Simulated scan of single mutants.
Amino acid sequence: MATTTAPVKPGAKRPWWRSEAKESYKVNWSATIIMLVASLTILIPLYFTVVMALKTPEQTGIGTGLELPSPMRLQNFVDAWVTVGFGDALLSTAFITVISVAGALVSGSMVAYAIVRNWQHRLFKITYVYILAGLFIPFTVVILPLVKQTAVLGLDNPLGVAIVHIVGGISFNSLLFIAFIRSIPIELEESARMDGATTWQVFWRIIFPLLAPMNATVGIFAFLASWNDFLLPQLLIADPTLQTLPVVQSLFQGEFNTNYNLAFSSYLMALAPTLIVYIIAQRWVLSGVMRGSVKA
């Protein structure tokens, strides 16, 4: 039997349980359940990492991964820092990451702007296809020539790793920037040129500030790619004292045993900067992806 509610008299205050927002609100339970299940794929490994980082060596046996540490051992973080020279590795990783992110933003945006605003020329269309072709070249095909080339040029160091990250990311980053720049009205540039602005001034004073949402998106991709990279630093950096965090963290894994508590303490410390960067830039990420997918 259908139920009815008494109408609200004109001028009368609507009760809180009959507010318009509550009457129009409807929970999508299927989407909510999917989101909760998907979140467990992140929360469970994160919980496992935190718990293992706080355990003593005696508590890290088989089948004890989900048990709470008793007692908690904060000394693991100090031991992990000293064991692998975490400070030096952190500086090396930060150097590579900062150079890679800055280079990715500058190179990707400049290449994309040149292609979009000169699309009527055949040379730039060919350049666009040539750059995108880099997405289909397997990295394993070029890794050995890269190792040889960086050694010959004296780039077998963190700077060389950063340069390889910048060059290797131009294809993907340019693709993102191109979609975004196409949504920027060209009338903004035309008015600036009428006031005497050069192409360089138009790009840095008008276009680049408008790229803030996409800069955040590309910056996070470049940050994660360089911060978590294991293969390139291991192959390119010749000096062991200049190695990055992912490489030195492999020292916790021996031939016959693994120091789990120190390893997970190190992983947790290396995870902290990525969380901080994402929290700072996350509000621009979604807007950059959404706007870059729409062509004006």
Rank of each mutant, 00 (worst) to 15 (best):
V277S: 12
R14K: 13
S265M: 05
I181D: 09
L175T: 05
R73Q: 10
T217Q: 11
F180K: 14
E20N: 06
L132F: 15
M269S: 08
D88W: 00
R18H: 11
Q249N: 06
F139T: 05
E255G: 15
A53P: 04
N259T: 11
M35P: 04
G87S: 06
G196I: 03
M35F: 06
V277Y: 13
A104R: 07
P185E: 12
L135C: 00
I34Y: 06
P10A: 14
G169Q: 08
Y130C: 00
R291I: 03
L146S: 14
F177T: 03
R18A: 11
G134D: 04
L242Q: 11
L232R: 09
R193G: 06
T5Q: 07
I163L: 15
A225K: 04
L155M: 11
V101W: 07
W227Q: 14
A104N: 07
I280N: 15
L188S: 05
D88M: 01
E20P: 03
I170S: 03
I276S: 06
F86H: 08
I237Y: 13
K9L: 10
F230L: 04
V248R: 12
D79T: 14
F77C: 00
F264T: 02
W81M: 00
Y128H: 01
D229L: 06
N257G: 09
Q201M: 08
A197V: 04
K55N: 15
V37G: 13
F208C: 00
G61Y: 01
A296T: 06
N257K: 15
N157M: 13
K55W: 13
H121Y: 11
M72S: 10
F180V: 02
L236W: 00
Y25N: 06
K26S: 04
T93V: 07
R283T: 01
V164P: 03
Y47W: 08
T64L: 06
V111C: 14
P273A: 15
F208L: 05
G134H: 11
A151E: 12
I131D: 03
A89I: 02
W81N: 10
T198D: 10
V147N: 13
I62K: 15
F172Y: 10
L235Y: 10
L132D: 09
V164N: 12
V248K: 09
W119A: 04
I206T: 10
G254Y: 13
Y25D: 10
S109P: 01
T241P: 07
W17Y: 08
T258C: 14
A151W: 12
A94M: 12
L144H: 03
A53T: 06
A162E: 02
I178V: 01
A53N: 14
N28A: 08
L175C: 02
G61E: 03
T3M: 05
E67W: 07
S39M: 11
K295E: 12
G196V: 01
A6Q: 09
V98S: 13
P145S: 12
P213D: 09
L268Y: 11
S171H: 10
A192Y: 14
V248A: 11
R18I: 02
P209S: 15
K55G: 09
A162P: 03
W29L: 09
P10K: 15
T60K: 04
L36W: 02
Q253C: 01
A31Y: 11
R205L: 08
E20L: 02
G288N: 09
A38Y: 07
V277H: 11
I115K: 15
V164Y: 14
